[in-house]
Design a protein around this nucleic acid. Structure first.
Length: 251
DNA sequence: AAGGACCTCAACCGCGGCATT
DNA sequence: CAATGCCGCGGTTGAGGTCCT
């Protein structure tokens, strides 16, 4: 007997995620967590396979994802770890906070593999011709890296019903604009760890109305953004924070 | 300016491992 | 212990963007 299909292929939507689907998934996971990916789409009202939802969440919607170009340090780490443990992307991702295995895999296949091929010693990788060439070509191209181009073209993400994933990247692709505070930098400074536990804690006290320390910080952040802290506004608040790149005030 | 070649990366697929029944 | 179900991983694909001629 073969393995049962992960979902009913007929009634399942495939392909790029729409803005609305992102919102539904994010709202649902934020409120209820993801105890069972298989039934989650049904409960959330999404015409997606559970796997697809999990992938979307882990690769894009998760709030602790760091986006933007990989730093040299990160690239070196990837090359070193790859040399040590091979194609174990998830293990490598575990050593690079905020990076996903998919992202690392892509970077490996598109850049690092070639670089390593050309220069097997990772320590010398920085000086390889390939990297110079790559960086040169990146700097050309209208003066924007692909990601920057991406995020700028998606600056009006909330107006476009586009399946683009970089709702988060518009905030976290930082460096060029100090005014656009990086969500990671800003929030992580205030909150030690934003993992699943964090998020469940964030919303766990909603019904009781009890504010934990985390809630207080969030409350401050929300009021600084002009939000009142109630259930409905929490939803809008976090949605805007993570998907629309709403600018954060200094705390 | 056009269009073909190449590159990037989001998303899908299938499989293995582990937990549960 | 076998069957079943779910999750997570790694490989692969294909659409869209960019570069080159």
């Amino acid at each position: 007997m073969g393995r049962a299909p992960c979902c009913e292929k007929t009634s399942v939507k495939k392909g790029p995620w729409s803005h609305q689907e992102d919102r539904i998934l994010m709202d649902y996971v934020t409120l209820h967590g993801h105890p069972n990916w298989r039934v989650l789409p049904k409960l959330a009202g999404l015409m997606r396979c559970g796997k697809s939802c999990r992938l979307r969440w882990t690769n894009y919607l998760r709030p602790d994802i760091k986006r933007g170009n990989f730093s040299k340090e990160e690239e070196e780490t990837i090359m070193q770890l790859h040399q040590e443990i091979g194609n174990r992307w998830s293990a490598i991702a575990a050593r690079l906070p905020g990076r996903t295995d998919n992202e690392i895999k892509n970077v490996w296949h598109t850049h690092l593999k070639k670089r390593v091929k050309q220069n097997p010693n990772p320590n010398d990788a920085n000086t390889s011709d390939f990297q110079q060439k790559t960086e040169e070509s990146k700097e050309q191209g209208a003066g924007l890296s692909p990601l920057e181009t991406n995020s700028s073209s998606q600056a009006s993400y909330n107006q476009i019903d586009s399946p683009q994933p970089s709702c988060v990247s518009s905030m976290t692709t930082t460096s060029t604009n100090d005014h656009n505070l990086c969500m990671d930098d800003m929030v992580l400074e205030n909150f030690p760890e934003m993992d699943d536990e964090f998020w469940s804690e964030v919303f766990s006290g909603e019904s009781s109305g009890e504010l934990t320390g985390v809630h207080e910080s969030i409350g401050q952040l929300q009021s600084a953004c002009g939000y009142e802290s109630d259930m409905h506004n929490d939803m809008d608040f976090w949605f805007n924070m993570f998907t629309r790149g709403e600018e954060l005030p200094q705390m």
